[in-house]
Design a protein around this nucleic acid. Structure first.
Length: 258
DNA sequence: ATGGTTGTTCCACAA
C-alpha cells in the first residue's frame, strides 16, 4: 500500500504532471494540497479515468485539498473541527479500507508575528486536538500534507535564512513536536534518521531548485498502528525537475498489508 | 539587503 502527499500548486495547471506521475508511481492513496479550485472545477473525470476515486474540498483561487484512492473513500469529513468561523479549505479526512487518512494544508503563517501567524498556531491547536481524538480509534491513521513546518535545522539548506520565518519559528516547531509526542511518527524521518538535503519544497525564485536550496515541509504522520506497518518512506524528487513543475514534490511511504 | 517566480484574479495577494 503506497501512500503519497503532494502539494500540486493548482490542480488545473498541474493535471498533466499529476496524471503522468500517477501512471509511473502508481500510488494507492494520494493526499493533494493547493488544488486552488472549487469542487465543481476539480478534474474528477480525468482522475477517475486514471483509476482513482476522488474526495474534494475546495474554494476559489486559494487552498483546496483532495484525496485520491484506488479503493472507495468513505465517511468523509471536510472541516477541521474547532472553529465554525473558519472558511478555508485546508482539511479533508476519510476512511479508506482499514485506514483513516487526512489531507492537510496547514496555514503558511507569514508574516510572523501577525494575524496570519496567530491563525497558523490556532489551526495547529485544533489539529492537535483532532489528532488526539483520532488516536482513540486505535486504528492505522495517516495525517499527510503540506504541514508548512520545517521540523529541525537539518530539514533546510540554510537554517539562518529561515530563522524568523513562520515555517521555522520555535512556536511552529513546538506545535509540530507536540503532535508527534501524542504518539505520531514522521514516516520519512523514522526510516531515514541521518539523511540530509531531504527536501520537499524548493522556491520558484532565485534558482532554489538548481542550487538545492530547499526545505522539508511535507510530512506523513503515522499513528502507532500505522507506524507498526511502515516498510519504506521516501521523497520522489523527479516531478520537481519536470516542465511546469509544482514548487513541491511528493513525499510517500509504503505500509505492509496486514 | 535585495530580488528573484508562479498562480489566480482583478488591477494585488499568496506563497
Amino acid at each position: 500500500m503506497k501512500i503519497a502527499s503532494w502539494n500540486v500548486n493548482s490542480i488545473k495547471v498541474r493535471l498533466p504532471n499529476l496524471l503522468q506521475w500517477l501512471d509511473e508511481f502508481s500510488p494507492d492513496i494520494v493526499m493533494l494540497q493547493e488544488t486552488k479550485c472549487v469542487e465543481d472545477a476539480f478534474p474528477r473525470l480525468e482522475l477517475e479515468a486514471a483509476g482513482y476515486h476522488c474526495a474534494v474540498v475546495g474554494q476559489k483561487a486559494y487552498n483546496g485539498v483532495a484525496l485520491l484512492s484506488r479503493q472507495p473513500i468513505e465517511e468523509v469529513l471536510t472541516v477541521l473541527p474547532g472553529d465554525p468561523e473558519d472558511q478555508q479549505a485546508r482539511y479533508l479526512e476519510a476512511t479508506i479500507g482499514d485506514l483513516r487518512v487526512a489531507s492537510i494544508y496547514l496555514p503558511n503563517g507569514n508574516p510572523a508575528p501577525g494575524e496570519k501567524f496567530n491563525y497558523k498556531l490556532a489551526w495547529m491547536e485544533r489539529l492537535q486536538a483532532r489528532a488526539r481524538e483520532l488516536l482513540s480509534l486505535e486504528q492505522p491513521i495517516v495525517l499527510g500534507g503540506d504541514w508548512n513546518v520545517i521540523p529541525e535545522p537539518v530539514d533546510c539548506h540554510d537554517p539562518e535564512a529561515w530563522r524568523d520565518d513562520a515555517l521555522f519559528r520555535p512556536e511552529s516547531r513546538a506545535a509540530f513536536r507536540t503532535i508527534l509526542h501524542l504518539g505520531y511518527t514522521d514516516a520519512y524521518r523514522a526510516l531515514n534518521p541521518d539523511t540530509t538535503h531531504a527536501y520537499t519544497f524548493w522556491d520558484y525564485q532565485a534558482g532554489a531548485w538548481q542550487r538545492d536550496n530547499g526545505i522539508r515541509i511535507d510530512h506523513l504522520l503515522l499513528s502507532p498502528q500505522a507506524a507498526d506497518r511502515l516498510a519504506e518512506a521516501g521523497i520522489d524528487r523527479e516531478p520537481r525537475g519536470r516542465e511546469r513543475a509544482s514548487d513541491h514534490t511528493p513525499v510517500w511511504c509504503r505500509l505492509r498489508d496486514r
